[in-house]
Amino acid sequence: MAGYIARRFVQLLVLLIGISIVSFSIMHIAPGSPIDLMTDRTTTAEDKARIEALYGFDKSIPEQYFRWAGQIIRGEFGNSFVTGEPVLDMIMARLPATLLLNFLTLIIIYVLSIPIGIISAVRQYSWFDHLVTFYAFLGQSMPEFWLALLLLFYVGLRFPFIQTTGMATWGVSIAEHGLWYFLVDRVRYLILPLAVISFTNLASITRYMRASMLEVISQDYVRTARAKGLPQIKVILKHALRNALLPIVTLIGFELPILFSGSVIIETIFSWPGVGLLSWNAVMQRDYQVIMAFNLLGASLMVLGAFVADMLYLVVDPRIKYN
């Protein structure tokens, strides 16, 4: 067990180094040097050389990599080309909004998909199951931005309660308006983005839950539980569900990067002030420092998340023994 954890940890370090190399390479596949972004035709050759030396672009590629990696380890992600602010501050300021949206989505998805998946599996090939399967195909095929635009036009613009841009009404605070007013205000802004992300992402988790449940209820121990005369509801909820849930819980690790990816589109449509909107703006303004930092941080978080999930799995599933 200790051996497995150690091996898994070394693997984690290797992945983080790999991620840093890929991130670094992307910066260098851009045609021309990054300096071209900071200079124009009026810049003299001496100035260019000075900037090159300042950023270390006159050094060899491996030297540049180690210099850059050293800065990253110390938490120096550089400053934005556009605003001059430290990149890390910009990302951290926007992260809570994205996390709020994604965690709420995750809760909605799991709260809905687990019971739907169970019923669908227990009543396999019933009209309910067919409806769920059909929905799963719709949800997986529907472009998020299209659904968002449809909802925006056919729902958002018709019901004044529903807000279509932003995250909260300016000036609304708990201190001034009370908790209830504050929450209702938040909900007005959350409804549409949550509806869109949940609708499209619910589909795959529901399918996994259904498949996982189907597999478990055909196992011997479930048959045994039935044979000794336990009522159906007890068999399903006590004996089958626990085991069927295991693979679904680990899916959270895979679902998070998908949700994060989706946040670029959703946040641009609803002007949600999170990291998705930030990166889109950064791309549009060619502010590469910001988006590179986000790529690096995002990928590193995913790898760390997977590591934590694996460790949790060790605790949750006693059947797994690693040599």
Binding site: Q11, V14, L15, G18, I19, V22, I26, M27, I29, A30, P31, P257, F260, S261, G262, V264, I265, S279, W280, V283, R286, Y288, I291, M292, F294, N295, G298, A299, S300, M302, V303, A306
Partner: peptide
């Protein structure tokens, strides 16, 4: 497989945004 995991760990849309923005 480590290389595969590295590529898979990037949030796709952000990676695509970056690369597409950088390339012609």
């Amino acid at each position: 497989m480590r290389f595969t995991e590295v590529v898979a760990s990037f949030p796709t849309m952000f990676l695509l945004l970056t690369v597409i923005a950088v390339l012609p």
